[in-house]
Design a protein around this nucleic acid. Structure first.
Lengths: 133, 133
DNA sequence: CACCTTTAGGACCTGTTTTGTCTTTTATAT
DNA sequence: ATATAAAAGACAAAACAGGTCCTAAAGGTG
């Protein structure tokens, strides 16, 4: 249960790699992929999306590449994980789409809420900068 | 991320239903399935497995059915969840099959450990009896 | 014993998600 | 112009989720 997908794992590795670059230095996707042992085209997809979200900045053409969108100390693990995996939701009924009317009736509900809040809290408390050290 | 599957959800519902039965009273799979709104054959599979694990007792033939394998107060939510979903493992590298040699090198590793232990702790602290009240 | 009831076990199936690949396009620097 | 890199989109194999269906086996009952 609750397994991070490869995509998530890859994303974290890539971001840590970027965090370890000298400030302002660009890294090619080919370089990142090789260093982190991630399939290049797959990582490219992940980073394309991250660029849209502002988690990384991307530049095309000669001398282009990727760098972090902001200081590694201001990017949390939670942000990275949720960017690839979607929100942290231990049970469908927490999705808040009204699918679950058990909010008041069901005793399991608050347990999932606790799980959710604990996990979010842990991931939120860790920054990419810490992971890159 | 970390979503419980339907199977897990169904299993919990079924166990709670059993916990609400009068002590020693047998419940038919057809009855449980209907009451909990779970596809009968699917629930049957889940409970077959639970019978092997001792989480429920099953009896065939007329007057047969299912009942809890022990007091509801001695069955934790963790046990039920892990019985259907497998161990709670936020990242593959925690599986301990030697697949991950990052144990000492990787900074993310201890974060996943913390997540794992927190979630396990929460689910462990809740019994089916509490959920059935 | 014959028969009915109820779970056990196994085979099978369908749709979705994961984990990618491949090709073409667009932007940029030289 | 040309070379370089990321962007975008189509495609696909494999695994997983979420079931169904059929037969077998066990246990009561008349």
């Amino acid at each position: 249960m609750m397994e991070l997908t490869r995509k998530g794992e890859y994303a974290i590795r890539g971001m840590i790699y970027l965090a370890r670059q000298a400030p302002g230095k660009m890294a090619l996707i080919s370089e990142i992929a090789e260093a982190t042992e991630v399939p290049q085209t797959f990582l490219a997809k992940i980073f394309q999306n991250f660029a849209k979200l502002g988690l990384v900045n991307s530049y095309r053409g000669t001398g282009g590449g990727f760098m972090l969108g902001r200081a590694a100390s201001r990017i949390t693990l939670r942000e990275v994980v949720e960017a690839v995996e979607g929100p942290i939701i231990p049970n469908r009924c927490l999705m808040g789409n009204g699918a679950c009317d058990f909010d008041r009736q069901c005793n399991v509900h608050p347990v999932w809420r606790r799980v959710q809040s604990q996990v979010v809290q842990i991931l939120e408390s860790v920054t990419i900068e810490e992971l890159a050290r």
